[in-house]
Every structure is written in structure tokens, then in C-alpha cells.
Design a protein around this nucleic acid. Structure first.
Lengths: 215, 215
DNA sequence: TTTTATTTTTAGTTTTGTCTAAATTTAATT
DNA sequence: AATTAAATTTAGACAAAACTAAAAATAAAA
């Protein structure tokens, strides 16, 4: 499997989680910053290799084989992210790009030894679950901060949108995975929250609360 | 710089150490398992990028820029090898291939953080020196075991040929970097050595002794 | 249900890195 | 010094992965 093929498989996997009936050409092109025609070409190739099932104009889904490949790529990506943050001291907004490269390193032995070295982590630095060596993903039960009841306490366990801007905002406010959050008050007009994070009081917009997972 | 370009630069660097006057096309082709005509094509491209200086039929040498790039690739390769052996528990005959992939990961920050994480090692698991962030390589004074005087004691510090077969031989004989070697006797006829390694007596062919560096 | 708009695919090119086969240059030998 | 041998380069072709522009299919709107 080439790097390019792996990138297509990975994108189809992520889009499948949102639209499991079939992923359309334009969506893939958008994610990969390429053109729809290039996607069509690649779908034929991946279909020949039995990694996706594809019928003209009908969108694509991953085959069993393709799904497994996708999970292994995601596994590698997330394990490398843990390594970069826990061992090398990167902050969580810096690791995505580097992990995009590292996820294409081929050795299966490497990734399993890395997994052991890291202590078999369940989630990456953004709170996303890490598939095990067989591809099994343990679901992490979590709610968006925007949806929890008032006056209960939670732990931050992940982010929905992991764009650099959002992660930098969290860093600035000293919000990290594991931080304890308690919703003190919710404004009816615009859903702005007053929260207490690690004992510090903070006002948070609905957009922020809608991007932060708690448990 | 593409992965292919980096591989050419790296090979030219290694060949330059043996023939500093200029590396010839066929030698490069041999190392990269490609054809001489492909090498010629690539030399034009690398020359345009000012990474090598190249004149038809006259062989190539690295430019200042090319030399620096080569050292950075070697730095990455050897640091990753240290990581694989010291942190992940690979044996020294398993790491080369994986490091061949890892050496092409782009981030400079990554490699400097990795260097720090590993404790700024001076040499890789085969005893080869690791260039620092500026490209400076501290020479390791070393002699081939085949060339040392009888009855003196040394430490193993590296290997010349790091082929899998040779490394496996060393593993089998429990010879590792750091092992203490004392030459007891040398056969005049075929230069076979009788040595004591970590207290254990062993007979070693000249071919072996000629591949093992001591200090 | 036509017509229009959008999405997707086809057809034909481009670039990168490779190849083969032929031509050229350098090195070696007589 | 002329001839042969070896190494190197050119010319032309190919596969992978991308592109543009045009054609075809599907979805949306009148």
C-alpha cells in the first residue's frame, strides 16, 4: 500500500463514521485537498485491491479488508501522538502533522512495541480512542460539555474539533485532558456557560462547550 | 526534498567517505538497486538544486548544502536506531530497515527532541557516530580487532560491516557493544585469533576480526 | 415532468522516478 | 596509437498520481 492509498483509506474511514451509507467523491476530494477526478481514479484502484466497494456515482464504503487497514493507520497515528506528547514533550496542538508522516511507517512489530512502551494507552492526547492490535476500539463514553446538567462535576476527556486554534485556546486557559470541570451556570439567551476548571472560574461560549468532551 | 532525493544524497555521502574525489554513477546505482541511467537523471536534478556538483562522466561530489543534508539524514537514521534498541527493545540486527523509513520524517523539532529524550547519544547501536544538530561528527577513535597488538584489552565499540548475518553471529557469541576483548594469540598461518570476551575464550576468524572495531 | 444545477466520471496531459536500448565518452589493452 | 572494453549518458517509453476540460449521470427546482 502506498502512502497515497493509505491517505485515501484513512479519509474514507473518517467520513464513514459520519455517513456510513457511502462516502461521496467530493467529500474525499475536499479532505485530501485534491480534485474529484483524482478521487475517481483512486477509487478504481482501491476497488481492484478489494479495499473499498465502489459503484459509479454511488459513493464508496470500506470493505472488511479496507476497514482493517484504516484502523491500523489510525492506531499508528494515535500511538505516535501519545509518544510525541508523553515522551518527547510536544504540546497537543503540535503533534498532528508529524503523526501524519509517522503513521505511514510500515513495521507492525514497531507499532506493537511502541504500544507496549507507552503502556497500552486507551486514548490519544485529544481523547480519541486507540484501536488495539486486532483493530478493536473501546468506545469512550463521553458527553459534550454543552450538553451536561448544571452543578455536576466531570473530567475533560477529549475534543471534537482539534484545530490548532481551539487547542491553543485550551492551552491558554490551562484546560488539559484530566482537568476537572463543573458547570456553575448556563445563560438561557446564548448558552454561555460559567464553569469552574481545576478550581478556577471561567466564562465559556457555547461554541467552546460544544467542542469539549467530558466524562 | 523527496524521499528518493534523500536516498541518493545519503548514498553519495556514504560513498564519498571511501572515494572523496568523486562518486561514480555505477556505484550509486549498485547501492540503490537501480540503473545507471536513472542515476544520471537524478544527478541533473540534484545538481540543479545545488546539492551535488556534477559534470558528465566525471562523477559527483556533495556540495556544502548537500553534505549538510546528508548529515541530517544520517543523524536521523542513527538516532532512530538508538530509540529502537534502547527504548523499544529491538536487537541491533533488526533496526536498519525501520530506520530507513524513519529517517525521512521531516520535522527538525522532532529529531532534536528525540535526541534530548535519548540523552544525546554519541553513537548508534552499531557504534557509528551521530552527527549533532549542526552536523558536527565527533570522530570515535577505534581500531579493527584484526589490527591490535596481542595481550592488550579493549572494548567493542562498533562494527564495520553491519549485515544481518554478521550481527546475528555477534549476538550468538554474546558479543555486544561494550564487551571487553583481549587478544590471547594470533595464528600466523591464517590470522585466526584466540580471544577472551567478557572472560569467555573464543576462536575468531580473520574475517570476523576485520569487521569488529575496538577501543 | 421538464429543465436546470450539481456531482461524478471520462479522456487526454503532466510530473516524478524509473526503465530499455542505443549512442557516446572514457579507460584499458594490444 | 589504434582498437576493444567498460562506464556513462541520451532518447524514448512507462506507471503512478495528479491535473484540466468536456461529457454523462444524478439531484433539485420550476
Amino acid at each position: 500500500m502506498t502512502i497515497s492509498e493509505e491517505n485515501y483509506i484513512k479519509v474514507i474511514y473518517h467520513l464513514s463514521l459520519v455517513s456510513p451509507k457511502g462516502v461521496n467523491t467530493n467529500a474525499i476530494a475536499g479532505m485530501l485537498d485534491t480534485k474529484a477526478s483524482s478521487v475517481t481514479d483512486m477509487m478504481k484502484k482501491l476497488s481492484d485491491k478489494d479495499l473499498v466497494s465502489y459503484q459509479k456515482y454511488q459513493g464508496v464504503t470500506l470493505t472488511e479488508k479496507g476497514l482493517h487497514s484504516a484502523k491500523m493507520i489510525v492506531r499508528k497515528h494515535r500511538l505516535w501522538e501519545v509518544f510525541l506528547v508523553d515522551k518527547l514533550g510536544f504540546s497537543w496542538d503540535e503533534v498532528h502533522e508529524i503523526a501524519e508522516e509517522l503513521e505511514h511507517i510500515k513495521s507492525e512489530q514497531l507499532i506493537n512495541k511502541l504500544d507496549a512502551f507507552l503502556g497500552y494507552p486507551a486514548a490519544d492526547p485529544h481523547g480519541d480512542p486507540i484501536p488495539d492490535a486486532k483493530g478493536v476500539i473501546k468506545k469512550i463514553e463521553k458527553q459534550l460539555l454543552s450538553e451536561v446538567e448544571i452543578n455536576a462535576s466531570f473530567h475533560c476527556v477529549g475534543v471534537k474539533d482539534s484545530s490548532t486554534d481551539f487547542l491553543k485556546y485550551l492551552d491558554k486557559q490551562k484546560i488539559a485532558l484530566g482537568s476537572v470541570v463543573k458547570v456553575i451556570d448556563k445563560e438561557d439567551f446564548d448558552d454561555t456557560l460559567t464553569v469552574e476548571i481545576d478550581g478556577k472560574r471561567l466564562t465559556i461560549s457555547n461554541k467552546i462547550a460544544n467542542n469539549l468532551y467530558v466524562q
